[in-house]
Simulated assay, not measured.
Amino acid sequence: MNKIPVSVLVQTKNEEGGINKCLAALTDFDEVIVVDSNSTDRTAELAKEAGATVINFTWDGKFPQKKQWQLEQVETRNQWLLMLDADEYPTPELTQELRAIAEDPEQTRVAYDLPVAYHFAGTGLRHGHRVVKRSFLRRGHNAFRNIDLLHLPGMGEVEAHYQPEPDGPVGRTEALLVHHDVDPVRTWFDRHNRYSDWEAYIRTHPETRGSVRESKSSQGRRFDAVPLKPLVFFLYSYVLRRGFLDGRAGFDYALALSTYYWQIGLKSRELQRTGANGVGGTGRG
């Protein structure tokens, strides 16, 4: 069977623990490019051994950040791009669905949102809240806008959690993208403590919040307007979306993300009370 006419862009930095699993799921795609950020481990070496092209990226501290830089600077053979982190890979069903999309000469959509099969604390979740990522893009029809977030504490080379903006219609796949982080669970809490700093700043700056909301998926925009997020999210994920069927892992995930939304609210109230600008002042957790 012919290769799928899609170029996969995998962004990495010190990902030797998971890069092989990611690349092993991409053998049906026509082109795999690993965009590596000066890894000090064997990430680049392992990627080359697996047959991927490796391009190095050194961030200059300015816009564009890494994802938009890839859209602007990385040359690809195909018009359809699948943008992945090293801890993500398509299921076989998603691989075939992406083939059908890319090979359809009547295709009018310029981007697809991919629902994510998430692993938390080493366990795959089949139920509960489902994250959606806009990761399948038609080249030249999508861009990450320059939202004023670079000054936030802990902001790095990769765009914060907002979606690329399309210039045409967006679809959603039926099949799933797997997210399987092999790092210990403490790193999840470290990241989300930092993310809650960013979200608190965004929430207390209306103009920035409006720009970020425009760049979210429809699901993200709806949830942004929900009051009492910690309680609502727990009930939604664990009860309505039947996260309880995943056992202890489903409870842990629903509670962890509910606590994350509680952190955002608490830090937002602190910023409003103190009048701080969010730079260097929201890192206490």
Rank of each mutant, 00 (worst) to 15 (best):
K3G: 08
L9D: 05
G17H: 07
I19Y: 10
T27F: 01
R42T: 12
L46E: 05
A47W: 12
E49R: 01
G51L: 10
A52S: 08
A52W: 07
I55D: 14
T58G: 09
G61S: 05
K66N: 03
E72V: 02
Q73P: 05
N78K: 15
L82A: 11
D87L: 04
T91R: 03
P92D: 11
I101W: 04
E103R: 06
A111E: 06
L114Q: 06
Y118M: 06
R126N: 09
R138G: 08
H141M: 05
A143E: 08
F144E: 02
H151V: 06
M155E: 05
H161R: 13
Y162R: 01
P164S: 07
P166D: 10
P169Y: 15
P169C: 14
H179N: 09
H180A: 03
H180T: 00
D183I: 04
P184L: 06
V185L: 04
D190R: 15
R191I: 03
E199G: 02
P206G: 04
T208E: 12
S211K: 14
S211T: 01
V212A: 08
S218L: 10
R222G: 14
F223T: 00
K229S: 12
L231Y: 08
V232H: 05
V232F: 14
L240Q: 06
F244G: 04
L245P: 02
A254W: 00
L255G: 00
A256W: 00
L257N: 11
T259M: 09
T259Q: 13
Y261S: 09
W262T: 06
Q263K: 15
G265D: 13
L266C: 12
T274Q: 02
V279A: 03
G281C: 15
G283E: 04
G283P: 00
R284W: 15
